[in-house]
Amino acid sequence: MKRKIKIALLRALCIISATFTCALVLFLLVYILAKGVPNISWELLSEKPSYLSGKIGILPDILNTVYIIVATLIFVLPLGVGAAVYLTEYAKNKRLVAVIEYAAETLSGIPSIIYGLVGMLFFCQFLGMQTSLLAGALTLVIMNLPTVMRTTQESLKTVPQSYREGAFGLGAGKWRVIRTVVLPGCIDGVITGCILSVGRILGESAALLFTAGTAHALNGFFGGLRSSGSTLTVSLYMYVKEEGEFGVGFAIAAILMVLTLLVNLLAMLVGRWFKRKRNYE
């Protein structure tokens, strides 16, 4: 009897916890959308803030977010893919592999505020970039490197060894094998890495506050990279904490929430698609 009660209790606790987690997500989603969507207007999305008319527009922040995502990916993809190719295709020294993997794990454990600080010291001050989107993007490159590296490494492991041997057997050199056999096989890892990185960049704020800055000027891509600019998350923080503009804050939160949902959905669909494709092969 006592045993039965204990079992029922444990089972109930598990179900309650899972329900609580779900309810929490549902509450956050509904609350933010309900508070934020009514505050989203075409004017908010299509204009820049103006002190003259006292209006707030988040177009510069949206563009800055796009710029910083593009700039980060441009740098992080070759670095991450190259590191993964080295680890799976070239590295023979086990100790060196262990050191590189330990470094990658260390990087993924470092909090973003520390990235922000080092980014400020190194990119903004030492390399003289000032607070600029480029400095922010380079800081994010360091943060996202482990992610791209890991997803690429995992997809490289699924390229069958026989493909490589076949190519070597036909007389191809190492680089040719990598270019024609190995790299095409890691496309899915690269895409997954991109999606995960985009999600992380969208949500990042602490690392950008002191590297990319808080300006709301409307710029083109290259002009934007050289000047200070606030992304959506940083703007949310500044509007809410420094200016008490909660309406704008919730509007940005709702936009971020929808984008996060989309990124998650995309990651899931892409994951399924690649899995199916691999099963066909």
Binding site: L28, G203, A253, L256, M257
Partner: peptide
């Protein structure tokens, strides 16, 4: 699981706002 990964993706400033 979908809900949990959404929870992981929500930006920290949004948690702060709520």
């Amino acid at each position: 699981s979908g809900a949990v990964s959404l929870l992981a993706g929500i930006p920290s400033v949004v948690y702060g706002l709520v």
